[in-house]
Amino acid sequence: MADQGAEGLLSPFLRRQRISAVRPFLRGRVLDVGCGSGALAAYVDRADYVGIDPDPISIAAARNRYPGYTFIQQQSLKDSAFDTVAALAVIEHVPDPVAFLVSLKANLVKTPSARIVCTTPHPAMDWIHWAGSRIGLFSRSANDEHEDLLNRERLVETGRRAGLREANYRRFLAGANQVIAFAQDAQ
């Protein structure tokens, strides 16, 4: 699997926009789920960052690009506590978004300020993403691997079913993408 964030003419731009959307939420220890080549690491102190990704090529690129940072080739972590769990353009690729959020929640510290932050394409713009992926503007493999695109209402409901609540939401890139920050429900 290639680095999908670099596959396609506009993919590096999209990656930068996703990172800009999540930067206001980065606090404390950060777990970057689906870190790819590790671009988010540039905005987090190396002692506070862990990136995970199942793709060995992406992990090798991340380790090369950000020496001294922690990058692990696996799907998820267990028994680790983070203030922020970021998943940029990942939730649309998983077969069970509720189970995915539950697994991310297991990595949050149990404080009111802890957040899971996700970016995902908005389903209303799926046709643009599909067409752009066919002509080389966006990653074709990323588009082909989409399981489901969730709008705000479905994201909120998915979070609720995982024991999370919406703390912040906004669309960006002229509405083509969205960022949602989830907080834990009261224990």
Rank of each mutant, 00 (worst) to 15 (best):
A2N: 14
E7P: 12
G8M: 15
S11H: 12
F13T: 12
L14C: 15
R15H: 06
R15T: 12
R15L: 13
Q17P: 01
R18C: 14
I19A: 11
V22F: 11
P24V: 15
F25V: 05
L26V: 14
D32W: 14
G34Q: 09
G36H: 14
A39D: 15
L40W: 08
A41R: 12
Y43M: 01
V44G: 07
V44K: 03
R46F: 10
Y49W: 13
V50C: 15
I52Q: 07
D53P: 00
P54S: 10
I57K: 10
A60P: 00
A61C: 01
A61V: 02
A61K: 13
R63T: 02
N64F: 03
R65Y: 01
P67F: 07
G68N: 01
F71N: 10
I72L: 15
Q74V: 06
Q75T: 07
Q75E: 13
L77H: 05
A81N: 11
F82L: 08
F82C: 12
D83I: 00
T84N: 01
T84I: 08
V85R: 00
A87L: 07
A87I: 00
A89I: 02
V90T: 07
H93Y: 05
D96G: 03
P97V: 03
F100M: 05
L101F: 10
L108G: 13
K110G: 06
R115L: 13
R115P: 00
V117C: 09
C118T: 07
T119K: 08
T119Y: 00
T120W: 01
P121D: 06
P123R: 06
M125C: 12
M125P: 01
W127C: 03
H129G: 06
W130G: 00
G132T: 00
G132D: 04
S133N: 07
R134D: 00
G136S: 03
G136A: 06
G136N: 07
L137S: 02
F138I: 02
F138Y: 15
S139Y: 02
R140A: 10
S141F: 00
A142C: 09
N143W: 14
H146N: 11
L149T: 09
N151A: 09
L155V: 04
L155R: 08
E157H: 08
A162C: 04
G163F: 05
L164K: 08
R165D: 04
R165P: 02
E166P: 04
E166G: 05
N168M: 05
Y169W: 14
R170Y: 05
L173K: 00
A174R: 12
G175C: 06
A176Y: 06
A181W: 09
A181V: 11
F182G: 08
F182D: 09
A183N: 07
A186H: 15
